[in-house]
Design a protein around this nucleic acid. Structure first.
Length: 428
RNA sequence: GGCGCCGUGGCCGAGUGGUUAGGCAGAGGCCUGCAAAGCCUCGUACACCAGUUCGAUUCUGGUCGGCGCCUCCA
């Protein structure tokens, strides 16, 4: 199996099964319900985990929850800890409703503070970090490799000017970034550290969590394309700077667009995953993601959703018709082993009429429900029987009337060859 | 301005140096009491301009356009 690696800018071969394949994906910062765009790395990582396990790999997937952040303090002044805990649960609920299962570990920043502090101390000893006024900063100039992942090796293009005004003066260089932030007025949580009370910076938590659950070297690190710089660049600096081999292959999923722009919390052009699930259901949403390659940008529009739904309905239809032999699992495997090409895999599955084969393929992506047949309510079935009788008697007027009645109940009658002569199908 | 990604038929979306992607929508046909479903047929697409080549949608360069990152961001 090969996957595109941001770090090498080419397709890289994975080790042969059983691996192991240790994967770390960056999860969301929980200060509101996650949106559909946030769901993409979750979906991609869970699908990949399922596929690799199917191929006989020993997979460990870690997906973190960032529950320490300025936005969390801002969202729930005085009650941030409880709020972050609640918002974490929302995330678990919403992604759980996709029906893809869960990562093996979902660590939170708040549960990893000792490991974070230890890593920062190590970096200070290596002269790669320095305390300043209750904060601790990474000394980018001491890490010559800084910028290799994102191609920002020159100082001008690789600065980190984001820190708050009052803190920026504490930095030796504008490129430096915070590993630890001293406690500030209005923040209702803080942790003890050798540098006083405070909290971890954003990037360091991932370095610490990845190592805690996967060890100093692991096969795959993933996340949204928008995390390449500075987040993943900083993770590399921290972990490799501290002597860990860290991630071998970097997967960055394409951005989800809405209204022509990136769907993002700061822009506010957001559809929550919860609302999307409520309006379209998991099958349609999964079909939408399945139809676009994981690295490509993708548009979330009524048109693309409607097409995804039609596609799901079309596949569901296959199970209402007789199973026919043809097709092979190998076609699907070839598509997925080539940079996890799910659109290609979907095209392959569209050719399959073999129920068992297609069910297996769909189950891989959490779409096994498309193979399930629904039983019509008894009263509608009775109407359908009466209609069959009316048809047999040549009373087509009555037959059409009964069909309309059945349709009013949300079902559709189809005349088919076979014992009963009809079939009831839920209206799409 | 810097770094990077992308531009495929009505729409979505794979892929390839010369041979069918697939789906959705649409047209016609078969079937059907009428439908639905199914099946068959139909669209000769690859932003533009050069170049390399026997031949480019696929390689190279440029132009135009879109998007992302450079600030929190999946």
């Amino acid at each position: 199996m090969r996957l595109y690696n941001t770090a090498t800018r080419k397709l890289d071969e994975l080790p042969a099964p059983p691996g192991p394949i240790r994967m770390y994906f960056c999860g969301p910062t929980v200060y509101q319900r996650i949106h559909v765009g946030n769901a993409r790395p979750f979906i991609v990582s869970m699908w990949l985990k399922r596929w690799l396990e199917h191929q006989g790999y020993d997979v460990t997937l870690v997906e973190n929850i960032t529950d320490i952040n300025d936005k969390i303090y801002a969202a729930a002044p005085g009650n941030s800890a409880q709020f972050a805990a609640d918002a974490s649960e929302w995330y678990i609920e919403d992604t759980g409703d996709l029906g893809l299962g869960r990562p093996d570990h979902e660590p939170k920043a708040t549960e990893t503070v000792p490991e974070i502090v230890a890593l920062i101390e190590e970096l200070i000893q290596l002269d790669l970090a320095y305390p300043a006024g209750g904060d601790v900063y990474f000394r980018v100039d001491r890490y010559p490799e800084y910028g290799v992942l994102s191609g920002r090796l020159d100082e001008d293009s690789a600065r980190n000017p984001s820190e708050e005004e009052e803190q920026s003066s504490l930095k030796e260089s504008p490129r430096d970034f915070a590993l630890w932030k001293g406690h500030k007025e209005g923040e209702d949580t803080s942790w003890e550290s050798p540098w006083g009370a405070g909290r971890p910076g954003w990037h360091i938590e991932c370095s610490a969590m990845a190592e805690k659950h996967l060890g100093p070297v692991f096969e795959i690190h993933g996340g949204g394309l928008d995390l390449v710089f500075p987040h993943h660049e900083n993770e590399i600096a921290q972990s490799r700077g501290a002597g860990r081999e860290f991630a071998q292959l970097w997967m960055h999923n394409g951005i989800l667009r809405f209204g022509g722009e990136k769907m993002s919390k700061s822009l506010g052009n957001v559809i929550t995953l919860r609302d999307a699930l409520g309006e379209w259901g998991p099958e349609t949403l999964l079909m939408l993601f399945l139809g676009a390659h994981w690295r490509k940008p993708m548009d979330y529009t009524d048109e693309t959703l409607a097409a995804a739904k039609a596609r799901a309905d079309g596949l569901r239809e296959v199970f209402r018709n007789p199973s026919e032999p043809g097709g092979s699992w190998g076609e699907l495997a070839a598509a997925l082993d080539d940079d996890f090409n799910t659109p290609e895999a979907l095209a392959v599955m569209h050719d399959w009429r073999d129920h068992d084969l297609l069910r297996r393929g769909l189950e891989l992506f959490g779409l096994g429900s498309l193979a399930e047949q629904e039983e019509a309510p008894a009263e509608l079935d009775e109407l359908a029987q009466r209609r069959a009788t009316a048809r047999a008697d040549g009373d087509f007027h009555e037959a059409d009337r009964l069909r309309k009645e059945i349709e009013a109940g949300g079902w559709e009658v189809r005349d088919v060859a076979g014992d009963s002569g009809y079939r009831l199908v839920p209206k799409a």
